[in-house]
Nucleic acid binder design. Structure first.
Lengths: 185, 185, 185, 185
DNA sequence: TATGAATGAGGCTTCATTCAT
DNA sequence: GATGAATGAAGCCTCATTCAT
């Protein structure tokens, strides 16, 4: 039995890239397989369907954000400002990288009325994001206001990422993050 | 000549609805035809291809916003506040109606790296929107600041519309518009 | 009731041109209608179907050759040589003109195994052609040989017309006609 | 990997047969697939499009003639007469077999004004044929005359094959080949 | 596990034909 | 007779998925 040619993480990263570039429906299993150096049929040894692969990508990205981005919100050893700065910095890095935008927003919009299972996973992601921001902002605002500001932050970032994608100009996200940083203190 | 079963405007509205619900790639010509009470093949009397139909929908929505929403920005008979209020109100109506979100953002994200012709048309839409807002905001801010605030407004609205779509809660857009209204004076 | 926009002969000539250029299956009723300055649907006032139109074109061309080309074979007022010369000259003119080759050969080959009705009509055309040539050549040869030479002439001309079409060089037909002229005396 | 249900050569032969019977535009991928015992979609594992399949068939036939028919022209161990006899015999066999005529001539005529890429490939075939005949005939004629006679031979054979197809009588080709054999010495 | 042949459903598009005006 | 909207069948092609090797 031949060994796995590629790691699961590698596949998830490649799939993330392709889904980000081409959207869900327009990306084919062959596209993703090719990006992995595999043939179409081989994908099915890793994931039983395109939908499952997409879910795995969503879970992978979600987990990554949880560990690498949102976790900073709960690191009470750092100052409020420092925590927000860190999260903003990492958010920028994530959304300007190979993901070319925010896959959660992209897939969320594309499949909102079509694949409810995706929507639920994606809502969980945004919930975690908003919870993390709310947690930090509670240092500064009332619980209620903190939540409102958190929602505003996420909306504004997602809108800016959209603009960034449509105009092909990272400036939109960078400006939004600067505004948020200013506003947050 | 037999009376047309449908008007061009009717087709554009139905196509808008279907594209909004299902996204571009997942919407089929048969879906749209059915929504129009026609057969698949009959669509091709009106538009020579799915891509052309999408472009016509984009143009239709753009024109509609120009006339019905953005135009208010230039109505100097009204006060700054009144003009912004009007635009916000109409924006809400547009994005909560049958469009179920903002088709410009949705299609823009989905096809950004795939169909550059769409992207260009969509950028033109956002340019007009931001220009209109900038024009109004110049009453209050410097030219430069006005433009920055306009970009922020559009980002925030688009982000909120995205959240609204993903969470299926109009509240996100309504909140964003309230924030913007407050901030703008 | 509006008058006919175009004459039947005009339609037949345009159809001949389009079928010659595009072949039978690849030519559409819309192509032919357009060449006539009509719309697709209007063709059906003249001919009940594409097949009937093709048959009418075949009959039209056949009749034309009968009257204008083959008839010379039976004009015993002229010398054998003169009759053959005349036929060759007219054949060249017909096949190099707007017909762009020999529609009988073209359609005959294309539909041989598919639309037997065409084949029959086309065989009638070639029969008339070979009969005419045989009639002339009987002045010089025995009945049997005359027929053989006639068959050879027609084969060679049709083959040359084919080469002319494929190489886009009238030379092939011209050379064949010269060879035949020489051989025939 | 599962054993292929069909070999590439088998597909080419079946496609040759179907294209020969039905012509290019009237033959469907489903027809060819069925002749191969495959489903329509499976054809696309072998050839990316109908046009590409047609090109492959043309190349296949060309190569076959090069190796099996034209090559005899250059076998100087045989006499002129013997070489011509061999070529004639094989030509007859090829054109009366499953090909049901000469696909090069058939497709050449049908697509001459529509798919220039085919025309070029087909011209290459006829060039090779005429070159081979010219090479043999140089034993007997001047270079110039040899080429003329070669062109005549090819025209006559193609015309006879056309007649054979239209009349459904192999006699036309057989007669032409006899005439050519006689004339060539 | 990797492959790649095969499937079958379905998508976009074309087109001969019909028919109401 | 002319139009052009509408039909519906069919054609090319794509693609998620299966499966034998």
């Amino acid at each position: 039995m031949p060994k796995a040619k590629v790691s699961e993480t590698f596949i998830l990263n490649q799939a993330l890239k392709i889904f980000s570039q081409k959207s869900y429906y327009n990306a084919t299993m062959a596209d993703i397989a090719q990006a992995c150096g595999l043939l179409k049929g081989s994908m099915y040894h890793y994931y039983p369907s395109k939908e499952d692969l997409m879910k795995a990508v969503i879970a992978y990205v979600h987990e990554y954000f949880n560990k690498e981005v949102f976790a900073h919100a709960y690191n009470t050893k750092l100052s409020t400002r420092e925590r927000l700065r860190k999260m903003g910095e990492l958010t920028e890095k994530m959304f300007i990288g190979p993901q070319e935008g925010c896959i959660m927003g992209n897939i969320g919009i594309e499949t909102a009325r079509v694949i409810p299972e995706f929507s639920e996973l994606i809502r969980n992601f945004f919930d975690d994001w908003m919870n993390a921001l709310t947690f930090v902002l509670k240092d500064k605002y009332s619980e209620k206001t903190a939540r409102e500001v958190a929602e505003q932050c996420v909306s504004e970032i997602e809108g800016a990422v959209m603009m960034m994608r449509i105009y092909n100009e990272p400036r939109y996200l960078q400006d939004a993050l600067k505004r948020i940083a200013k506003r947050a203190y």
